[in-house]
Design a protein around this nucleic acid. Structure first.
Length: 422
RNA sequence: GGUGAGGUGGCUGAGUGGUCGAAAGCAGCGCUUUGCUAAAGCGCCGUACCCCAAAAGGGUACCGAGGGUUCGAAUCCCUCCCUCACCGCCA
């Protein structure tokens, strides 16, 4: 949620920043300001009437206690009360309208974010390793099915298309990767492990800005008052919603493994083969809550923490910075980490590391008390560390051998108990 | 799922229709006293929003949330949310 004061004081700046996203949101600003002016006008009038009623009611109290007749005054105040009721409705209506509008406006891209319309304009920030030279290149579906690591046909028998069932060594590899990542982030990177609920309230989904705009992409239950979390970002970031944290407990660093549930309506296309885009997938997520002063620095280290996984697994990847037009709704700055998939002959996004600045914190009223004792909004960040199915795919595609087996990275040996499959 | 008890400031906790944004205590901040510590005394100490060019200042709202009754609601009524206890069911 944007700070209405900034919108009020620098509307042209806000509009020009929003325009960079290319979503047409800058057109909403004038209407928002009109509603804001209306709201403040109605509020001021209401407050004046409230002050009058308060004063007169006290007089009535005084007269009664002295045994005087106050009926004339009471009649007068009753009229004021009627007026208040009427104005109150106006204020509530306009206030709600303004809040709803604010919830639909995306975050401003950070000043240093590159301009560009879509993913093709995302600059590559760095890359690590090189594309492996393979004797043959099968894709993960073929490898996985041949070695009985996963069974997509039977999965669809259970849940329809877009679901994975890992089997045998595949299921073990999935579990191994989760454990490996959690251990690394907790032991080496200083994150606190959390195992949150997978179902979250509507308020939480609004807090991290999945709602109201993207309700169609979410799985809702209980008359849409409860949702299957599309990412651990939702329960973990909202863990401290409506709290005032003390400045010396920041930054908060959490890591959580959860399954993630997404409808991804209308996303059929090139990326849908195999396990690349599914309705349920596992993910280890990193979340930080920081001060405004340190969030960009923390963003860099969070991204590095996620990259470390790929480095230890010896998988080639690159990091791209999202241009303004490709930025997610709530993010002010984002790095995507893309692992190389020999089978797809493409880079696959396995992590999206974003700084939301105070955008989410405003929505969830998450604040901290600074050194001067003032309450200020926190900054929130998150990034996958990492998303499992695509990592799984890259891993078995990169490790595939001439004889049909898959060699696994050494680092997984103590976790997996074998250096290759089968 | 059933029954019951509750939700008041950072915390504890008073307050059942009027001058209550809310007693008191604790914690915190400042000052005085003091060789230091301790102790004591005095003072300060919520948040959001609105008005004002700004500051100073002023105002309104907030006692879980939203409605209602009333001239006036922390206090009475309704709905919802949450917490706790016991019972039932259950991995």
């Amino acid at each position: 949620m944007l700070d209405i004061r900034i919108v009020r004081e620098q509307p042209d700046f806000v509009k020009s920043r929003l325009a960079l996203r290319g979503g047409g949101d800058e057109a909403k600003i004038d209407e928002l300001l009109r509603v804001d002016a209306e709201r403040r006008k109605a509020e001021t009038a209401l407050q004046a009437l409230n002050a009058e009623r308060k004063k007169l009611s006290k007089e009535i109290g005084g007269m009664r206690s002295r045994g005087q007749d106050s009926s004339q005054l009471e009649n007068r105040v009753r009229k004021v009360g009627d007026e208040i009721a009427r104005l109150n409705e106006d204020v509530n209506r306009v206030d709600t309208q303004q809040k709803e509008m604010l919830l639909e406006i995306p975050n401003l891209p950070h000043l240093k974010v590159p301009c560009g319309k879509d993913a093709s304009a995302n600059p590559v920030v760095r890359s690590w390793g090189t594309k492996p030279k393979l004797d043959r290149t099968l894709d993960h579906v073929t490898i996985g099915t041949d070695l009985k690591l996963l069974d997509l046909e039977r999965a669809s028998k259970l849940s329809g298309s877009g679901f994975i069932c890992f089997t045998g060594a595949g299921a073990r590899l999935e579990r191994t990767l989760i454990q490996f990542m959690l251990d690394l982030h907790t032991r080496e990177h200083g994150y606190e492990e959390m195992s949150p609920p997978f179902l979250v309230r509507r308020d939480c989904m609004v807090g991290t800005s999945q709602l109201p705009k993207f309700e169609a992409d979410m799985y809702g239950l209980e008359n849409n008052q409860l949702f299957l979390a599309p990412t651990a970002e939702v329960p973990v970031t909202n863990f401290h919603r409506e709290e005032i944290l003390s400045v010396d407990e920041l930054p908060k660093k959490y890591v959580a493994y959860t399954p993630c549930f997404r409808r991804e309506a209308g996303s059929a296309g090139r990326e849908t083969r195999g396990i690349i885009r599914v309705h349920q997938f596992d993910k280890v997520e990193l979340v930080k809550i920081t001060t405004p002063e340190s969030s960009f620095e923390e963003h860099e280290s969070l991204t590095a923490d996620a990259e470390k996984i790929l480095q230890l697994l010896g998988l080639h990847y690159r990091v791209v910075e999202l241009c303004a037009g490709d930025l997610g709704f709530g993010a002010t700055k984002t790095y995507d980490i893309e692992v190389w998939s020999p089978g797809q002959n493409a880079y696959l996004e396995v992590s999206s590391c974003s700084n939301f600045a105070d955008f989410q914190a405003r929505r969830m009223n998450l604040r901290f008390k600074d050194a001067e004792g003032k309450n200020r909004f926190c900054h929130t960040l998150n990034g996958s560390g990492l998303a499992l199915p695509r990592l799984f795919a890259a891993l078995i595609e990169t490790g595939q051998q001439q004889d049909g087996s898959v060699r696994l990275p050494e680092k997984l040996l103590p976790y997996f108990g074998a250096g290759q499959i089968p």
